[in-house]
Design a protein around this nucleic acid. Structure first.
Lengths: 341, 341
DNA sequence: ATTGATTGCACAAACGATTGCGAGAATGTC
DNA sequence: GACATTCTCGCAATCGTTTGTGCAATCAAT
């Protein structure tokens, strides 16, 4: 069953008394080759389980069929969902995905970028680290004719196709929902000022308030640094100690929302009756805590799929193709941490 | 900065008036080449940023420097941790990791196995799906001289190096801890009977009881099918309705433990004072719920690292090397869901 | 000065698939 | 029957690197 030596075109050619080139063309049904020869070759190849040597093919075509995927961290539900989408789409077209982590550090990001460049990937999908504020290391890819797609955390300093989630609309929807439910004083625990996401979500928050005749009360807006549960806990404490504490929290991410929830539970403040909470990102654990966490879903899988499609398009149709910007919807998922309608 | 044409050995040879072979050997400091020539070549290569064409190198060596990693599902904290360990170790030695999901289905597992075979990976690391009960599709790898390492969910029908966690010892430690804290009636919500993990954890549970002068009360043992939170909730309900309900739960996995916790909270049963809970796997969310969940940590990252090391060993030292079986410790992580000591 | 060993490098084949070009056979045209 | 056209296929180069072998030149020993 298992030969020591993998079957090659040469073997087939010798066996069939044909030239290697003829066999090669026959397998591709090249018009230069007669129907009979094609059938002969294909039958023989099938029968003996010929499978082209990928190394040789790739070498010849100087294509690695590898694409690089750079993400802040692998062990993270949102990113692993993206990865899953990328891999599924990539495999469908015969590409492998090399996963690299930046660990949210721009230095690591530069390191893996260089490694990907050296390993001659056919393309790159990247979600920037929180630290990244300049993208010179990415422009090297373009210089080397390697297409890049940005997803999720993107930089507008760098003109590539992009796949992002409509953070603004998701946030707007969430805050509007809170207002419609009758919550009056909505706090926002937001992310860092240099992160586009945070800004977009803040914008959604602000505009939803304004649309409902309120204006942003800066006392109700807190800026997280690391987006941890502790920060959520801490800011909840601060906010709930105000003379007029908020009656709802819209948090930049679920983990922070859970920190808020923890504080409220400790203080025996009822969620959702006294205070409502909405998070962002739809982490698994939001379904498990109780009350379950109302959140905004980010379609990670679709982001991955779409990004890979855009990348394939760039790879095949060249760098001249326009740099599309795909915006996916972030939808509110209503759960127990907000009042019933 | 960016040449259209990547620098090759030929270019260097022509420029330096040497033969291609000399340049090649010089770059590797081959003893046949004089010190001066070596320096000359290396300096030139450095200066002009020569980087060997991986495609050509791999082709020549007929090595893909790709390894396959087959796991049940990517979007799962434990597996993504393993992946992370594998990738880190693989990258250190210039290998890429192709991640494939079996989705816990043996059919998908067979499919990806065939794909990996065709893509001529240099080796495979696999964690079997829950459905897998025969391993013929894996023996194809051995027939093709592609080394395989099994991790976590393994089959003893298939003689390869293996990396597993000492589930037995972890469970034993957990249950002993409960007993030492004074819990008397310890229930066990376990996994399916055909899954080796579950059996090992059960064994640890049983032996810990016996060591402490108890014997297993089968009324206190429940078998989960899908390991969901709902099952935990449900079995907690059943068990707490017994005339003599348990005063502690040892659960096969954290998610089930959280289901138990949810039920107890609904019934206002105090954790850990009235009932203690220990889970298994150390999921992120166990740190976030309150009370935080006591659990047994499975060192996913180390599993991945070690598996990759074993694979590299097989790849480099040939198939004759002995099939080591590495057993890593699963350590108890004490948190709030059990009484203080 | 002849032999022998050693050093330092070049030549060329090889890996397996792809592809431009050309050649021979078969067929058709006048 | 001479010539052009079409159909099939083979030849050979090519991608960039590695590596076995051979060949001068140098040096030492006899």
């Amino acid at each position: 069953m298992s030969e020591k030596h993998q079957l090659t075109l040469k073997d087939i050619a010798k066996e069939l008394g044909l030239a290697v080139s003829t066999v090669s063309r026959a397998l591709k049904s090249h018009p230069d080759i007669s129907k009979e020869t094609i059938k002969l070759v294909k039958d023989y190849a099938d029968k003996h389980h010929y499978v082209p040597n990928l190394l040789a093919v790739n070498f010849r075509k100087s294509k690695t069929y590898n694409i690089g995927l750079v993400i802040p961290e692998l062990v993270h539900q949102f990113f692993s969902t993206i990865i899953s989408g990328v891999i599924k789409e990539a495999n469908e077209y015969g590409y492998n995905v090399m996963i690299c982590q930046s660990n949210e550090h721009v230095d690591d990001e530069k390191k893996v970028a260089k490694a990907l460049l050296n390993s001659r990937v056919d393309g790159v999908i990247i979600s920037l680290s929180n630290e990244t504020d300049e993208v010179s290391h990415l422009k090297d890819f373009i210089a080397a004719d390697i297409p890049v797609i940005q997803v999720d955390k993107i930089s507008d300093q760098f003109d590539t196709p992009k796949v992002i989630v409509n953070d603004y609309a998701g946030a707007y929807q969430a805050v509007s929902y809170l207002l419609d439910l009758g919550y009056k004083r909505i706090a926002h625990i937001r992310g860092r000022l240099i992160v586009q996401h945070s800004n977009e979500r803040y914008r959604g928050y602000a505009e939803a308030l304004e649309k409902h005749g309120q204006s942003v009360n800066e006392d109700y807006v807190k800026v997280c640094d690391l987006l941890t549960e502790d920060e959520g806990f801490h800011f909840a404490q601060e906010l709930m100690s105000l003379p007029e504490p908020p009656d709802a929290f819209f948090c930049v991410t679920d983990l922070v929302a859970l920190g808020v929830m923890k504080y409220l539970r400790e203080k025996d403040i009822k969620v959702p009756d006294e205070v409502g909470i909405i998070g962002f990102s739809n982490w698994k654990l939001g379904e498990i805590v109780s009350p379950t966490l109302c959140t905004v879903d980010q379609p990670g899988y679709e982001i991955g799929e779409k990004a890979m499609q855009l990348l394939l398009n760039k790879i095949n149709n060249g760098m001249e193709s326009p740099n599309e910007r795909v915006v996916l919807n972030a939808d509110l998922i209503v759960r127990e941490s907000v009042k019933k309608q």
